[in-house]
């Protein structure tokens, strides 16, 4: 078990530093390690744990907690989560401190912010489309998606009410 914890810590600390754009960008690499190399879960278990994490509140990165739990129990969940979060967080903390708030870097900050903003908008839109595509064969689901997009774009209506409405619509069989 200690061996497993060591491997999880090493693997996920490395993935943490590779996960440019977010945890989901290294999901294929997690699959390779946990399913193909270590054989700690089946491909189907991997996919089920992923959907469960998507449906649960909180940052999507927490899917790694379930992977760690499946691989090595509660200790595995803790070790995997910390390994995935700490290296990138330390890097972000110092990047924010040294690069973004350093005096005299204003021109470069402006250039980089100008350069990154459109890329971010494109990626956020792409992840919205990816989540929507799971329901692509339900017309009313797509209508609900579009309606929520417009409401959250044009109003300050709280997202949680829309989430609750979505759950009710789902149970009622409307979407």
């Amino acid at each position: 078990m200690t061996d497993r914890l060591g491997i999880l810590a090493m693997d996920f600390a490395m993935l943490s530093l590779l996960s440019v754009g977010g945890a989901s960008s290294v999901l294929p690499e997690m699959h390779r390690s946990l399913v193909e190399v270590q054989g700690w879960m089946t491909s189907r278990e991997f996919a089920e744990l992923y959907s469960l994490a998507q449906a649960s509140p909180g940052p999507n990165v927490l899917v790694v907690s379930l992977f760690g739990w499946q691989s090595a129990g509660l200790a595995g969940a803790v070790v995997t989560t910390l390994a995935m979060v700490i290296p990138s967080s330390v890097l972000t903390f110092y990047a924010d401190r040294l690069l973004w708030r350093a005096a005299g870097a204003a021109m470069w900050r402006e250039i980089i912010d100008n350069a990154l903003a459109p890329v971010t908008v494109g990626l956020v839109a792409a992840s919205g489309v990816l989540v929507a595509s799971a329901n692509v064969n339900h017309v009313l689901s797509l209508v609900l998606t579009a309606a929520c997009a417009i409401i959250s774009w044009r109003t300050k209506f709280h997202p949680l009410w829309m989430i609750a409405a979505g759950a009710v619509a789902g149970i009622a069989g409307i979407v």
């Binding site: 449906a55 609900l144 979407v175």
Partner: peptide
């Protein structure tokens, strides 16, 4: 079923956020 409804809303919320950010 509830999860499917929630995921449809979640997709809309993400797209709405992209639209807001696009106003930058």
């Amino acid at each position: 079923n509830a999860l499917r409804g929630v995921s449809a809303v979640a997709a809309g919320l993400i797209l709405g956020t992209a639209l807001r950010m696009a106003a930058s």
